[in-house]
Design a protein around this nucleic acid. Structure first.
Lengths: 261, 261
DNA sequence: GGCGATTGGGTACCATGTACGCAAACAAGG
DNA sequence: CCTTGTTTGCGTACATGGTACCCAATCGCC
């Protein structure tokens, strides 16, 4: 694809991931566009109309380029999605993050992560894997893991942060699902509920789902603001972390010591 | 699409979801296939080669039908995916589930759910929303929520189960991501690690990511068996639930229930 | 100034979901 | 039994999406 200084061809497969691939070589005409610009345009479209609307042709049109021109900047659409994912990770503000007050830090992180997911609902559909971690994602890991680094061994820290992230992502995923359902059907929340009434009613009337019925009839949770639900659950998770900090402070033995692989 | 007994046409839009749509009318030639058969075939393909490999043509070929024949049984591919999702939910064995020992029940549920996700990694990519809950999903909710129903108010129960499910799904999602990465690259785990070494090495050498470096160098977690990681984290989540049961048992609800084993 | 790599982008190919139409199959009324 | 209305299986066809390939225009470096 490119030629390095030795003049040898460098094939695509040479690069482990996009982050190892140079944005542009120092030769030939000046590029009209840029990875950042393309990524930005793609995010704009995905935010407004979903990730599936961000097609190569559409993105190209958005920046006034020809469809195939994008491939001068990005090896494939999948890779572009990785760029998008890392780009939005950068929106999470973790400046001054190990502030000393871990609970405040994690609360802020949780709020920011959730807000970011809600701004860019399509990240719910992209799965990340370790080697695709870009600079923003890495910096985030750095700051987030830094919050508890002084208090617990690294393994414990990994476990706790996995729990925290799972909670945040799981919760937001549900918010996104229902929001997407509304959008898909083009109905308002109340219209949508009216529409699904026949189904829910049939289930309730069948008598086979007493607890489901209880949820439908009694639960107030669904009527609370999403923000309150989230914050309430988050407090519980943080309590959990507090307990774990306590116990490791007492017996500093990291978990899984006695376990063979 | 179909005609009801009055002879009036019933359009697709009349149905809230697939579960409200009758499988087949009582007229015309006997269908050669069935929803269940089609769903089964689709799952088989998706398990082996990913959800994107389960195309309509491929599924049809699998059962020896023409591509368009599937649309006599399923309104769209999206709806078929919903059928698939509910079908695999049915694999989770929750018989006799409110057994009295909530901790054992939830542990069993967690193990089963995780095992099911690992058998059918593609569910990670399908997002569920309330109205698409099929019979198996509903039965699962029924049994799972039943486990703590006697101990906590319904809203608390919802919150706790959301936390539990988030933990399970978040953890398994990561397992799936890396497994998929291996499969995609066609490499073994060690080959794959060797391949991504240049990237990791560059990050470590840069000195900008001390905690990332610490994870790479010191953490033993990634070397533990996935099962152990999962079980360890799960215990922590269950402890969390235990604490929540404790606190709600003290104030609002009448006593008489016991505590974790 | 010329060489050779690189850029923009048009054309084209293949895969996918699915609308449409038609002939064969079959239940119910005569 | 035959007619009639409806459904089934499925081939054809189209719109859309990713992207391989090609070519002329562009520009850094000798």
């Amino acid at each position: 694809m490119y030629a390095n200084k030795g003049g040898e061809a460098v094939t695509d497969a040479e690069y482990v991931n996009i982050w190892m691939r140079p944005e542009r070589p120092a030769y030939g005409p000046k590029p009209t566009y840029s990875r950042a610009q393309i990524t930005e345009a793609a995010i704009r479209i995905a935010d407004a109309e979903g990730l599936e609307a961000a097609t190569m042709r559409r993105i190209a049109a958005e920046i006034g380029a020809g469809a195939m021109s994008l491939y001068r900047y990005v090896p494939s659409r999948d890779n572009l999605v990785e760029l998008m994912a890392d780009r939005v990770m950068g929106e999470i503000d973790v400046t001054g993050m190990p502030s000393g007050d871990w609970r405040a830090d994690l609360t802020r992180y949780a709020d920011e992560l959730r807000a970011m997911w809600l701004r860019h609902p399509w990240i719910a559909t992209v799965q990340r894997s370790l080697p695709s971690f870009g600079p923003n994602q890495l910096l985030l890991i750095e700051r987030l893991m830094g919050v508890l680094d002084a208090f617990v061994p690294i393994d414990e820290n990994l476990g706790l942060m996995a729990m925290l992230n799972s909670y945040i992502e799981g919760t937001v995923r549900e918010e996104i699902s229902s929001a997407k359902e509304f959008r898909r059907s083009g109905l308002s929340e109340s219209e949508w509920m009216a529409r699904s009434y026949p189904y829910v009613d049939r289930l309730v009337k069948s008598g086979e789902y007493p607890i489901f019925t209880k949820i439908v009839m009694e639960a107030r949770q669904p009527h609370l603001s999403r923000d309150d639900q989230f914050r309430y659950g988050l407090q519980r998770v943080l309590d959990c972390i507090a307990a774990a900090l306590q116990s490791t402070a007492e017996s500093p033995t990291p978990p899984g010591c006695d376990e063979p692989a």
